[in-house]
Design a protein around this nucleic acid. Structure first.
Length: 494
RNA sequence: GCCCCCGUCGUCUAGAGGACUAGGACACAGCCCUUUCAAGGCUGCGACACGGGUUCGAAUCCCGUCGGGGGCACCA
């Protein structure tokens, strides 16, 4: 894309009503990438004009989520900026001012209809295949309107939309979109409590904050004519609009759920950024994956660093069709990113998750075992079950039958274990030495390597699926290893 | 019901009239490697929604049908 002539200023403007959803995160990401690509500003604005649905935790979830994803913003409610305040309820006077201006200039009118009447009208019109308001108050005289307002009658303010003709808006992603005014409503722009609706607030703020590009979800296309008309009525130049298609639910129908379901296998299907974090998705992996949902660079590149994403992002290559969230692919990305971590960094990242899982892990042990489990991890929380046995005094009781190698019987196990014990009592506890000694021992005992390794693994780890044996033994150390072998032998002798 | 958007493998996508025998990735299957589990390598399976046009030629342009999504609040 050619660099826009005006300075690029984009915003992510969520409403603090609930948890921070990946759909929103993706919108934030695309705005962020666009801003960084053009060397512009990424602004955070809180659209809290809905007092009823306000959720005090939402802002924390949002800010924490953006920080976790490392989508740093240049201006926002917490850090301020030259165009603040960045919370809409702190800007009410501004909206009032323009609302009055619109009424005075005949672009908007007071509507005294009660919610009851509106509900009734809506119902009646629905039967006729029409929707919305019947414009009952549209032609009240200025005098009557003012008088009733002065008398204290409750009212909302509606935009006086043209009754005929059409309006064409150019969307940077979709191209031209045309709407017939005849199909549009006289939308409420100011509620009876003096708080504007989204439509007025968004236009006023985007203009005052000098937003150059509005990149938002597809659910807003239908209010495009309303917004553009508002810009006209206010005498302002509208920003460039770009509507990105939504993310669809992997299970079932419709846009991606606001609730976290479960896969048929019982696995959690996260939809909140917080949950992705809790499960141990790496921010870079999530960001990379999210960028590929609805955007592509070329026909084969999908693994990209943040820097590359920024370099390569463009609105032109944003897809117009909705796409389904693919957990398998995200997991694949995450595994890839985990495998690319340096062992030290992996250890650092793993530690808090292990502690959260109740494992009394120390940095040094984790650092030593990290390379062995690295390629086995899909998400960071997977590590717990790979390493828990390193950090217990006594192994939880396991099924003794697990000790039995393929095509052998329980009675065959004690001699194998005793042979292993003899070897391990003397062997040097390093990966290669253990490898050599145990292989040789197996051969001497007339066993295949696996037939010797399996019982040792079970005796020492208490489970069938575990990190590679020699790494495990090396980290565990001779003392613990022998102790666990003895303990298994003791149980077998009972 | 009305309005808007969209329609390439199961999924994410490449493709902007001839370069398409339609490319890549995930998933799936098989094989190789292998001390469990992974990871990795190789191979395979698999799509232009349908019907009409336009054109010498259409996945690409137009129309219709069907399908999917979104919207029609004093919510955003």
């Amino acid at each position: 894309m050619t660099t826009p002539s005006k300075p690029v200023r984009v915003r992510y403007a969520p409403s603090p009503t609930g948890d921070f959803h990946v759909g929103g995160a993706r919108t934030a990401l695309f705005n962020y990438l666009f801003a960084r690509h053009h060397g512009g500003q990424f602004i955070l604005r809180i659209e809290d004009t809905d007092q009823k649905r306000y959720n005090p935790q939402a802002l924390t979830w949002l800010l924490d989520g953006l920080r976790y994803l490392e989508l740093e913003w240049d201006e926002g409610p917490d850090i301020g900026g030259d165009f603040g305040p960045y919370t809409q309820t702190e800007r009410l006077e501004l909206y009032q001012k323009y609302c009055h201006q619109l009424i005075d200039e005949g672009h908007a009118y007071r509507c005294f209809c009660t919610p009851e009447r509106l509900a009734q009208v809506r119902q009646e019109r629905q039967k006729q295949g029409l929707s919305g308001y019947d414009r009952h108050c549209r032609n009240l005289s200025a005098q009557e309107s003012a008088a009733r307002a002065d008398a204290g009658e409750s009212f909302t303010v509606r935009l006086k939309m043209p009754l005929e003709g059409d309006i064409t808006v150019t969307d940077a992603i979709r191209g031209d979109i045309t709407f017939q005014f005849a199909n549009l409503q006289d939308a409420v722009i100011m509620k009876s409590d003096g708080i504007p609706t989204y439509h007025l607030a968004v236009v006023v703020d985007d203009h005052h904050m000098q937003i150059s590009h509005v990149i938002r979800g597809d659910e807003w296309v239908n209010s495009l004519p309303l917004h553009v008309y508002l810009y006209r009525a206010l005498g302002w130049e509208p920003p460039v609009f770009a509507h990105m298609s939504l993310i669809l639910n992997p299970t079932g129908k419709g846009k991606m759920s606001k609730r976290e379901g479960r896969a048929p296998d019982g696995r959690v299907l996260p939809v909140f950024v917080r949950t992705f974090q809790e499960l141990g998705y790496l921010p870079d992996a999530l960001v990379n994956y999210m960028a590929t949902v609805g955007w592509s660079f070329d026909d084969k590149t999908e693994i990209m660093t943040r820097r590359e994403l920024i370099e390569r992002f463009s609105l032109e290559r944003v897809n117009t069709s909705p796409s389904t969230w693919n957990y398998d692919k995200l997991n694949h990305f995450n595994g890839l990113y985990i495998r690319n971590l340096a062992p030290d960094e992996l250890a650092d990242r793993l530690l808090p998750y292990l502690h959260a899982a109740g494992i009394n892990a120390d940095r040094d042990t984790i650092r030593r075992i990290a390379p062995a489990i690295q390629e086995r991890l899909t998400v960071l929380t997977d590590a717990a079950e790979w390493v828990d046995f390193f950090f217990v005094d006594e192994l939880p009781e396991f099924d003794l039958n697990l000790l039995v190698p393929k095509k052998m019987a329980l009675a065959d196990v004690p001699p194998i274990l005793r042979a292993a014990r003899n070897i391990l009592a003397q062997a040097e506890f390093t990966h290669d030495a253990l490898d050599a000694a145990l292989r040789q021992g197996a051969k001497a005992a007339g066993l295949k390597p696996g037939q010797m390794f399996q019982p040792i693994r079970i005796a020492v780890c208490g489970k069938k699926v575990a990190p590679p044996l020699f790494n495990t033994l090396e980290v565990l150390g001779r003392q613990t290893t022998l102790k666990r072998l003895d303990s298994a032998l003791a149980r077998l002798e009972k």
